[in-house]
Amino acid sequence: MKIYARQRHRVLQVITRLLVPFVLIFGLYVQFHGDYGPGGGFQAGVIFASAFILYGLIFGLQRTRRVLPPSVLRWLMSLGVLIYAGTGVLTMLLGGNLLDYDVLAHDPLHGQHWGIFAVELGVGVTVTAVMVSLFYGFASKR
């Protein structure tokens, strides 16, 4: 993939700098507003990753690696699955079935809320890490 790290792409660089924060915010919005509108962990993870990919396309892989190193990605990738599975294990330890969030709080509805929050967070973290590392994998093998 052609990584544009040249000075002559000034317009693209400025626009990217303006866009990336909004893309990240939108990713967070989709992540945590999924209970009320469309969206959830999968979509949010992809949107969040696309911000890093856009940054990588314009500013080069080297700089993106400095923001989000591959070693961190490897941890995040597993962390997401661990958050998800850990929520399931926690519900079992608290006396419920696997991923039965009712037991997470005194009020079952609150428990469900916390459970869905944790689970979607796990999905989002894993999807973000996997998507960005897919991009790293392709872009670094030019």
């Binding site: 999924g34 209970d35 009320y36 509108g37 469309p38 959830g40 962990g41 999968f42 997401g80 699955v81 998800y84 599975a85 399931g88 696997l98 991923l99 969030y101 509805l109 469900q112 809320h113 459970g115 869905i116 689970v119 979607e120 796990g122 999905v123 894993t126 999807v127």
Partner: peptide, 22 residues
Amino acid sequence: GPPNIVTSVLASYRGYDTLGET
């Protein structure tokens, strides 16, 4: 709880499937 039923199904009723997807 969530007004978005899709989220309820995806994350709660079918939480085990979503774990598999992840």
